[in-house]
Simulated assay, not measured.
Amino acid sequence: MSDLILHHYPVSPFAEKIRLILGHKQLAWKSVLIPMVMPKPELTALTGGYRKTPVLQIGADLYCDTALICDVLEHLAPAPTLYPAANKGAARIVAQWADSALFPVAMAYNFQPAGVAQVFAGAPTEVLQAFVADRTAMRGGAARMASADATGAYKSYLRRLANMLQGQDYLFGEQPCVADFAAYHPLWFTQERTPALTGIFDPTPEVLAWMARMKAIGHGTSSQCSAEEALQLAHSATPATLPDEGFQDEHGLPLGSAVVIAADNFGQEPTEGELVAATRTRLTLRRTDARAGTVHVHFPRVGFTLKKAVA
């Protein structure tokens, strides 16, 4: 197996989700640190436009979105499983809720003034300004939820998690699954980056105990890798043979079409390339870059749109 290369930055919550899964599965991985805001020239040379964090690279294959990265890691290391047979569908649904509903509420709570002061303590004003401008662009100009509304919703969500944890160590039993890693990462940011705001956890001791168990999993074994090295590795590699999972056409676009894939809401920077796979669960583009060579960029179907490229 080629090296697992994670393109991330230390304070990224979604990257923490994957770092913990790598630790849970005891996989060795290489760490490429990327900027927190655009531009990200080395990353986008690999992905063709996708800029969200993290991205998993295996040779000349780039996997975007943590839902897909979870599936890839599960395939590489099936045990311990992220998807327990008895709760496979429910675990995926809770994970999707955590990523799409819990995460934005938690981050709106975290980025109230007291949280911002801790996250950017000691940083020049222009760093904060650049971050605000970058995330505003990623939201397409939409306003962030007001902190008061976020606080109320966050408290409700924490109570729901506490209810799930009553009488058991993890959300679906005695072992962590994909739902645990997805629900943990926005709470991790509150605890680790905005400690002035951690009083919100006090009414839910079950959640606090669970968070301690999740943190103890750790990140496994990692080593540093430069962005330039990652580009060279992609350039010297050949994309893996695509599995024969069948072509599922939902758009009237045959394989070989020039298409554009983009997230359906947050961070909608497009990636253009040749459609080389469209399965039940994922979409794959082939693209060529002067620095990265020929690569395959993979996206999950859920959360992304596919359109014909404009000539």
Rank of each mutant, 00 (worst) to 15 (best):
L4Y: 09
E16M: 11
K17C: 04
L22H: 03
K30Y: 10
S31H: 06
V32I: 12
T47W: 09
Y50G: 02
R51H: 15
K52V: 07
I58A: 07
G59C: 12
L62M: 15
C64D: 03
A67R: 14
V72S: 01
P80N: 08
P84N: 07
N87Y: 08
S100T: 15
L102N: 01
V105I: 03
V116Y: 00
A117S: 10
A121M: 01
P124M: 03
F131W: 15
M145K: 11
Y154E: 11
K155W: 03
R160M: 15
L161M: 13
Y170H: 11
A179N: 00
G199A: 06
I200L: 13
P203D: 11
A209M: 04
S223A: 14
S223M: 09
E228D: 15
A230N: 04
H235W: 07
A237M: 04
P243G: 13
D244P: 01
D249L: 10
S257Q: 02
V259R: 00
D264A: 06
G267M: 11
A278V: 10
R280P: 05
L285M: 02
L285Q: 06
R286G: 01
R287W: 05
R291A: 15
A292F: 02
V297L: 08
H298P: 04
V302L: 10
V302T: 10
A309S: 06
A311F: 08
